[in-house]
Each structure stands twice: as C-alpha cells, then as structure tokens.
C-alpha cells in the first residue's frame, strides 16, 4: 500500500493501543502489553511495523497464538506490513507486568508475584497473602500449576487453594 499519508498518521501509541486488544489466552483478561512481553515496536516511514515479543517461559504454548493475534490486530490498522519477532534479547521477568496488569490479575483471584531486584528467592513463595481472605497463613503446595507461570498455594485460614503468578 504505497500510501505514505496514511502511514504517517499511525504512531507507536496507536500500535500500543491496538496491542492492548491482544490477550494472553492463558490469562484472558491481561493483554500482551500489560504482561510486559512486548519488548520492541519499530515503525518506519513506509508503514512497516516490527513488533518484538519475549516469552514469559521458553516453553509457553501460547506464543504462536499471540504472534498470530498480533498480526491479525495490527493488520486492522492502515499499515504496510507487520512482522513479529520472538527473541530473548530482553528476558521477561514478573516485574515487567504493568500496574494495570497486576490489578487485573488480582481482581481475577490470583496472588501476585512479589517485586524483586533480579533474583527470585525461595522465601518469595512462602507465606504469601491469600487473595481471598488477605491473611498470610498460607503454604506453597506446588511451584507447578495449571500453566507454567502459576504456582499453587493453600490458605490455612480460609481453607482455600489459590494460584499465584510465579515470581520469575
């Protein structure tokens, strides 16, 4: 589409807004922007867009799906081409989940990963706050849950199992 005029009207903010419509299929309230997995957006004057994405886990089965969804959504914009590259140049960690993302996760009943300075300590998985009753009388049941990014805990106060987004 050799239409320079339209391409100029597209800027990164519009792309980011559009990417907010692409959700993580394993956490369907949270967008790829809120998960913090979009690590680069390049837009040239001809309207070619390149999006760089980094996986939460190397074996995340949702990567191909999200890649396709990003292409599909951005194709709705007046742009020339879309390329999505997945690489590990920036390594995802749970600190990269946005404030909005944390709020959405909390509202969905997940316990949140503690923010950390780069190294995850075993203590960060112990006595975490129960998302149901707010108390910390909880135990880690398993660091492996329904998806790679979740751990399973049990609250000894309200006697509920709950899931935590793992600190990574």
């Amino acid at each position: 589409m050799p239409n320079g005029r339209l391409a100029v009207m597209i800027d990164k903010d519009i792309i980011i807004e559009k990417l907010k419509e692409v959700k993580d299929p394993e956490l369907p309230l949270v967008s790829v922007i809120d998960m913090g997995i979009i690590t680069g957006i390049d837009l040239d004057e001809k309207g070619n867009v390149k999006v760089v994405m980094t996986p939460t886990f190397a074996g995340c089965p949702a990567i191909e799906y999200m890649k396709a969804e990003i292409k599909k959504k951005l194709d709705e914009l007046e742009i020339n081409s879309v390329e999505v590259e997945v690489n590990f140049n920036v390594q995802w960690n749970s600190n990269m989940i946005s404030e909005n993302g944390r709020k959405l996760l909390k509202d969905s009943g997940f316990a949140l990963p503690a923010r950390h300075t780069g190294l995850v300590q075993i203590e960060m998985l112990q006595k975490i706050e129960c998302p149901f009753c707010g108390k910390k009388n909880t135990r880690l049941m398993s660091a492996f849950g329904a998806t790679q990014c979740r751990a399973v805990h049990y609250c000894d106060d309200c006697m509920q199992m709950f899931e935590q987004i793992k600190p990574v």
């Binding site: 996986p55 886990f57 190397a58 690489n87 590990f88 390594q91 995802w92 990574v168």
Partner: peptide, 9 residues
C-alpha cells in the same frame, strides 16, 4: 540471553 532466561525457569 537464552541462558539468563533459562536459569530463572
């Protein structure tokens, strides 16, 4: 880059 990611996992 890959190694940094994997060690967290």
């Amino acid at each position: 880059h890959i190694a940094k990611k994997f060690r967290g996992e």
